[in-house]
């Protein structure tokens, strides 16, 4: 009898056309997937080594007008300095594939950091798009915030003004600062997910 029941149960299951399984790797509220990547100084950075600290991931493409908006204005550099001073680990991630816009060699990137007075903890060189795809990064600048327990608490746009215009930075609501401030005060992040704006990440086809 039991086997008969199972037999029919199985047949019923097979009769159902369930959608093909597929799992998103990264999701707000879920543990941030771990990765190791080489930075522009040739060091290996592993996300899980920074458990206990807040981590910001910033997708970067120096040729993208939306990224340029935040670098030419000095907005991104100011954010990097403000939050790394408060103990936050800031990784700038370059997922542009070789030959695509935004692809740079480590020495080019180091020169750029000096020229732009940029101050991230490290720049992760991700020309194969491994970190980008792991986090489903879509645009530059897309921002992700991870809390000390390793949970993703913010994923999305840098602010609420999806334009390439420098004049739109003033008065914009910066979602990254909001998320970090709220989390550090022990509050829930009010806006944990927004649509990231900007140029598409230039992955290899």
């Amino acid at each position: 009898m039991k086997t008969l029941v199972r037999l029919f149960g199985g047949a019923a299951l097979a009769a159902m056309l369930l959608p093909a399984p597929g799992f998103a790797q990264a999701r707000v509220g879920a543990p941030a997937p771990d990765f190791s990547a080489t930075d522009s100084h040739g060091r290996t950075e592993t996300l899980s080594h920074f458990r206990g600290k807040y981590v910001v991931l910033e997708w970067h493409n120096r040729g993208c007008p939306y990224t340029r908006k935040h670098y030419i204005s000095g907005n991104m550099q100011a954010l990097q300095r403000e939050w790394t001073a408060k103990g936050v680990v800031w990784f700038t991630v370059i997922s542009s594939a070789r030959g695509e816009q935004g692809y740079v060699t480590p020495s080019e990137e180091n020169a750029y950091l000096v020229k732009m007075h940029a101050d991230p903890t490290a720049v992760l060189m991700d020309p194969e798009g491994k970190v980008g795809r792991l986090y489903d990064a879509k645009t530059t600048p897309q921002m992700i915030v991870i809390d000390p327990s390793g949970k993703m608490i913010y994923d999305g746009a840098i602010d609420n003004r999806p334009t390439p215009d420098v004049e739109d930075i003033k008065g914009a609501d910066n979602y990254v600062s909001d998320a970090l401030t709220e989390a550090m005060e022990g509050k829930a992040v009010a806006t944990p997910y927004t649509r990231p704006y900007g140029c598409s990440v230039k992955y290899a086809e």
Binding site: Y66, E100, S200
Partner: peptide
Amino acid sequence: MKWLVCKDVCIP
């Protein structure tokens, strides 16, 4: 008018 036009790169 404002627009964004893209190919593999984007130009506002």
